[in-house]
Amino acid sequence: MAQVERPLSPHLQIYRLPLTAIMSITHRITGVGLGIGTLVLTWWLLAAAMGPEAYATFVKWVPGFWLGKLVLFGFSLAFFVHFCNGIRHLYWDTGRGFLPTESAQSDKVVLVCAAILTVLTWVVAFALMGRA
């Protein structure tokens, strides 16, 4: 009896995910990361509310420290990826853009927009830091 070649569901460890699938899980990962990142935002607000010394501590450890800057950079990149991909999700919610060719195209639009916005953010941020 011949073996019936049934389609297998993708085995996640060996299946090369299409870009759209990678961006789907990236949306979740960036969402969780941004949620954890709200701790930094809350630290900033709390420090500013508490007083000059608490605020100086925040400035020393977050924008004034290379690791803090790296976290802020990661936060901004995650934010813009989630922001742009989120807008694509809202577009999808209208029932449009589901063809593989269309999603392959919007993958690139989302990634390029997120990259441009992140770079722009840091160019402006460093210009503003130089001003101060």
Binding site: T38, L39, L41, T42, L45, L46, A48, A49
Partner: peptide
């Protein structure tokens, strides 16, 4: 955390 952030504002 959310209340701490909002209360700070």
């Amino acid at each position: 955390v959310g209340l701490a952030a909002m209360l700070s504002i």
